[in-house]
Design a protein around this nucleic acid. Structure first.
Lengths: 145, 145
DNA sequence: ATTCCTGCAAAAACTTTGCACCATG
DNA sequence: CATGGTGCAAAGTTTTTGCAGGAAT
């Protein structure tokens, strides 16, 4: 499920990169906060508890790296921040979507593969081979009705 | 299809706002560039051809206003810009999705209502009433294969 | 040792705000 | 002529970059 230090070191090695305390800690924070949608600033604040000297720039650089390594997923909830979460699609493309309540702003995560039939249709209709998707549904959650 | 000056004036009046040359021109540009995904800066440059004295700040303010009036649609292609396009969902919720090619970056627009069955499912499964959605599919287009 | 990384501060990029003057209704 | 809008410039935010010192292999 989660990536241990040796696996991480190996992934970095393939790109000629090194495993540093800072990289390990940023990944740890993301892994420990699965299901959260954290901004760079939020990640920085959490990491700083254990590693007070870490700079925000390093967090930004690490986040980009983790995204390139496909360890984390980027998402945009239209609030002016880019948010990140640990990638759940490591285990065989099990995507999830976000239901965003327009009243309370709550974000509900949904695991669902219903999108697959649509993706097949795009292949036959437009000859476009979908490899990933990002879906946001806006609406009203059960508590706000 | 497109919003004329009187309709626009009426929409503004309901909010106690005035119809100005600048607002009319920004809306014109968006309407004339249907299918494009324009940034504030791009809109500014196009409007400036006809109205050289318009300021970028006015474009930003107008864009926000048009979005509140639901005349334009906001979209994010993860390139660091917020982009806008004339809303096609005026005519009875006929949404469209974006197919983004990971090789050439081309954005293909797709009109499709296949999402409806999924939305119905969210209602029964999560009691979440979807009112809107934003969908981006990433993949490889036919030209890049 | 060499190469890569980090922290800091400065810069960049995008967007918002304040204010005096101007335009609309 | 009252109210709201505009342009400009300044300030705000979020993110990126340059560089000298520090850490990893």
């Amino acid at each position: 499920m989660s990536v241990n230090s040796e696996e991480f070191r190996q992934l970095l090695k393939e790109k000629g990169l090194k495993l540093t305390t800072q990289r390990r800690m940023v990944l740890d924070v993301l892994q420990e906060n699965e299901g959260q949608h954290l901004t760079a600033e939020e990640i920085h604040e959490i990491v700083r508890v254990r590693c007070p000297e870490i700079g925000l720039a390093t967090v930004y650089r690490t986040i980009q790296l983790l995204h390139e390594l496909k360890l984390i997923d980027k998402l945009n909830l239209d609030d002016g921040y880019i948010r990140y979460e640990i990638g759940k699609f490591n285990d065989d493309h099990h995507h999830h979507h976000h239901l965003i309540c327009e009243v309370c702003g709550k974000v509900i995560e949904v695991e669902d593969d219903l999108m697959e039939s649509i993706e097949e249709r795009f292949l036959s209709k437009y000859n476009f081979a979908v490899t990933d998707h990002k879906v946001k549904f806006y609406g009203i959650c059960k508590d706000c009705k």
